[in-house]
Design a protein around this nucleic acid. Structure first.
Lengths: 375, 375
DNA sequence: CTGAAAGCGCTTACAG
DNA sequence: CTGAAAGCGCTTACAG
């Protein structure tokens, strides 16, 4: 407030310092090259469209930009062009759990391939709708134009307000049917892995189910039944146990092992790999060897679990990377994105998983096996 | 190019549509409230500093903003104020592995608490320096002012160019000593978990080491030796095995189990939880029970592993969340951030982990135990 | 207390 | 081929 000459001088020095320190702008480059910012802009953005800049000028500008270490200010560019090459990735925890992590990585790679930057916002599971909408609002304030809503596991979500109509739901289905969704083809995966069991000769196959995750659980059950039906096998409710999707959930297998010989299963299909891990444990506790005495298969191909079990687990790999990549392509309206994907009836795009054969399946035998009549 | 009246009309309609569709700006709000953008800006940003806007005006502006659904354009604001409340989080895969994932989540939470947005960029492990620098450059173009460089596991990294001097390295140590680093206190963690074994009565303790991760491995070894020394126990090279940090790495324990009685260890300290998982397997293969016949401890408290083993594993929890939070506080120059943290000698901040007692440790006994003279 | 005006760093018709 | 000028949506001295 006093503004004496001394203070004025200090201020001047400061301004000077900032001026020399600050990042060079287009104007600086133009000045150094002796051209207008128009010209500098045109050559630096490689724009052609009928504009023909002589090579000499072009080189002068490029040289100046390099000498000064010029880097464009994306904020200014975006403000001016009214577009930001950004995609908002809102998620209930995907990026912080080992489950669906490939989705994010693949989405990021694919976005980069298109010159887009992914803004990732984690909400944590069960975030109240208000918090979700706040996050979306924050991204909108940053002018992000595209949105992906990613979930840790396959479920149905109520789309938060503020999401544009062309937002893509990843690993979850948006209720209301107003949005596109990409999910794993649970039914097909279950069908394949159960078929693997049947083709190995098993006739009595248990299903250790998870009753807490309706869409995935129901669909895997459908696949299970379809495989049975296709091979003329009857579904037996007594072999269908509901449990929790954790290692300890697999321990319920004990109940089935204790069944009289003729009613015991020779193979077990587990809702996920962790239940399978518990099933291994239950089998071992009863002195049963996997797969000699009992075949076990899982679902998910969860990292650090499925391949590390002893013996390594036959399971279904969830197509997370493919799903993440496709989400970006959809949101960016990439032509041909849906070419390799089967037509979806209900607006939900289902991507096939992949059977991963490892060492937990064998022919049934001994007291446990029933040789199939045909084999 | 023809520009007939018909085309002109269509264009007009389109412009009109866009105009009505577009997000309302400050100017729209000001107009609706009958004030200047200056006034609208002042009330909407809650700026005070001697500016006294009468309540009537204030309310009118706020009402207009709400009616129109006004949301500020952060790009424009940042461009004008020359600051973005953003932090770049560059990482070698942290966000896509289950290891150090708490770091990212905590960093994001803490950033949000300060009104900052985290821009997360994954590089993938072993990304060439050029790619890293490109990612940093991209963030810089977005005018991010602060940087965190996060690693999946504790190691030494060469800081890529383009990182400002006040960047923070998270879960890794920047070579060159020009940057601040935050890492877990490996030595202290190892010391504590080994002490747990010693205090349970063990005198012959093996170390299943990982030779591929120098800094962490060396420091855990130091902690191991410190605990031994403090209790008057001698370090025995024969019980120190180098192996790989995977489940199969733990199988080398078999060699130690096959040692003659008097030379066999009664407890095993494993470099990480996955090695411990393998050690369980090796013990079981030889008919040994954990912990009755052999105590086993790990390191990391890895999710889905440590607590799911049978019996649940005693281990050391890595302080990832604390580290992530601190990184944000450092980068934001939060006063008092370092108050709870022990003084670091070498510019590297080491955060203490926490001993997690579960059920894999018991007194030595039988052929395996040597009762301590004092107990 | 309030508004006109400048300017952040770009791009883009438009005119020469 | 090239430049002057406008303008994206804000904030902020500055003047009334």
């Amino acid at each position: 407030m006093s503004g004496g000459p001394r203070e004025g001088r200090a201020l001047f020095q400061e301004v000077k310092r900032l001026a020399t320190t600050r990042r060079p702008t287009l104007k600086d480059v133009a000045q150094a090259a002796g051209v207008s910012t128009t010209t500098a802009s045109v050559v630096l953005t490689n724009r052609r469209e009928g504009v023909r800049v002589p090579d000499a000028t072009r080189h002068r500008v490029q040289q100046a930009a390099e000498d000064l270490g010029y880097r464009p200010n994306i904020l200014a560019r975006s403000l001016r062009t009214q577009t930001t090459r950004t995609i908002g990735f809102v998620s209930d925890e995907v990026t912080t759990t080992p489950f669906a992590v490939g989705m994010l990585a693949a989405a990021q790679d694919e976005a980069a391939r298109h010159g887009y930057l992914l803004f990732v916002v984690n909400l944590g599971p069960n975030a109240p709708l208000a918090l979700q909408e706040q996050a979306i609002d924050q991204l909108a304030q940053h002018q992000v134009g595209h949105f992906i809503y990613g979930c840790m596991y396959h479920r149905v979500v109520d789309p938060p307000a503020g999401l544009p109509a062309d937002a893509v739901f990843l690993n979850c289905e948006a209720s209301g049917g107003r949005h596109r969704s990409i999910v794993p083809d649970e039914r097909q995966g279950a069908y394949e892995v159960v078929k693997e069991l049947i083709e190995a000769g098993h006739r009595r196959i248990a299903f250790l189910d998870d009753h807490r995750h309706p869409p995935a659980s129901r669909l895997r059950f459908n696949g299970f039944r379809a495989a049975l039906a296709e091979h003329g096998l009857e579904y037996e409710p007594a072999l269908h146990l509901e449990t929790t999707p954790f290692v300890r959930g697999g321990l319920v297998l004990s109940d089935l092992i204790d069944l009289p010989d003729e009613r015991r299963p020779s193979a077990v299909f587990c809702y996920n790999d962790r239940i399978a891990m518990g099933a291994y444990r239950a089998a071992r506790a009863r002195g049963l060897r996997v797969p000699e005495d009992l075949s076990i298969v899982g679902f998910d191909d969860q990292e650090f679990i499925a391949s590390e079990l002893d013996p390594p687990l036959t399971t279904v790999r969830l197509p997370h990377r493919e799903m993440g990549r496709l989400a970006i392509q959809l949101v960016l309206d990439e032509p041909g994105a849906l070419d390799d994907v089967p037509e979806s009836e209900d607006g939900v795009i289902r991507i096939a998983g992949e059977l991963v054969r490892r060492d937990s399946v064998a022919e049934p035998r001994g007291a446990w096996g029933q040789r199939t009549p045909s084999s």
